[in-house]
């Protein structure tokens, strides 16, 4: 087991290095000069050179990368070109909003996904099951940014129940904050709940067909207790890992929904960085996102290893 963990941990290092090189090169190769952006169109040659020097852009690329990397491994992502804030400050500023949205979406979708998934599994092959299946397929087929637009039209512009976009700190005004959170959270949760419902159903069905469940039933235990005490509990484990992965995806992957609702999250931080060619922000935030995702992925794999020894032993090199 330790060897397995060590091997998987070691594998993440080249992944992270490769990603960071890719990010670095993409930014440098993309047209658009950050020094020009900072100094403005009327910058004098001296001003431009000074800006370049201050941003470290006068160095050759390998040195720029080495400098960045040596700082990054110590957790120092440098100062943003544009705002002159440390990248960490910027990340910490958007983190609460990002987590708020991801959590809200996760909670909503878990509740919904579980109910639909359990209902589907218990009524396997019946009409309800089929209906839930179709509903899930539709939920998966509706692009969330379009759903967001429709929700804005209906709930913000026609009914005027909820604000169309923006964000209020939860600490400052919890009530308002929840009002702003509602539409983007629902938008994200719809698709996610479909993913979860499918997973809950599949995993519950797997368990229901296992011997020990049959034994429990044969022993004459009440159906309710069979499902709750035996089946659900065991079906839960893969579901939890899926949720973990989805949460990781939500942290960085809600870019489009953030854009629809003007939500100041991590995704919009990256987009702003790309638009302004703020190398330090994009490098720092993307590296953090990638690291988070890789770690969550690793954790999931490890959990799987714990749950299913076949994974640990059978697959050389890991998949």
């Amino acid at each position: 087991m330790t060897a397995f963990v060590a091997r998987r941990l070691l594998q993440t290092i080249p992944v992270l290095l490769l990603s960071s090189v890719a990010i670095f090169l993409l930014l440098r190769l993309a047209p658009g000069d950050p020094a020009q952006y900072i100094a403005g169109p009327d910058a004098s040659a001296e001003g431009l050179a000074a800006a370049r020097r201050e941003m470290g852009l006068d160095q050759p690329w390998p040195i720029q990368y080495a400098v960045w990397l040596t700082h990054a491994v110590r957790g120092d992502f440098g100062i943003a070109f544009v705002t002159r804030y440390p990248v960490w400050d910027l990340v910490l500023q958007v983190l609460p909003a990002t987590i708020e949205l991801a959590l809200a979406a996760l909670i909503l979708s878990t509740a919904l996904g579980f109910v639909l998934g359990v209902v589907g599994a218990l009524r396997e092959g019946q009409f309800v099951d089929l209906a839930v299946g179709v509903l899930n397929a539709i939920a998966l087929g509706v692009p969330n940014f379009w759903l967001g637009l429709i929700l804005i039209i209906v709930f913000a512009l026609v009914l005027r129940w909820l604000p169309p976009s923006g964000h209020v700190d939860f600490v400052r005004d919890p009530g308002q904050s929840l009002r702003y959170l509602t539409l983007p959270a629902i938008t994200l949760a719809v698709q996610l709940s479909a993913v979860l419902a499918r997973f809950v159903r599949a995993s519950l069905l797997d368990v229901l067909h296992e011997d020990y469940v049959r034994t429990a039933r044969a022993k004459g235990l009440p159906e309710r207790s069979v499902i709750v005490r035996h089946a659900l509990r065991n079906a839960l484990i893969p579901v939890v890992t899926v949720m973990g992965l989805q949460f990781g995806r939500l942290l960085g992957g809600a870019v489009i929904v953030e854009a629809v609702f003007g939500w100041p999250g991590i995704g919009s931080l990256v987009i702003t960085g790309v638009v302004a060619r703020d190398y330090t922000v994009v490098q720092g935030v993307l590296t953090l996102l990638v690291t988070t995702f890789v770690l969550i992925n690793l954790l999931t794999d490890l959990l799987y290893g714990v749950l299913d020894p076949a994974v640990r032993l059978g697959q050389k090199g890991g998949a």
Binding site: Q11, V15, L16, L18, S19, A22, I23, L26, A30, R249, G252, G253, V255, I256, G267, V270, I271, V274, L286, L289, V290, F293, V294, N297
Partner: peptide, 15 residues
């Protein structure tokens, strides 16, 4: 693995 670690939307934006 590295490609997979990026949110796909951000890959699109970067490209």
């Amino acid at each position: 693995d590295s490609v997979l670690a990026f949110p796909p939307v951000l890959v699109g934006i970067a490209v």
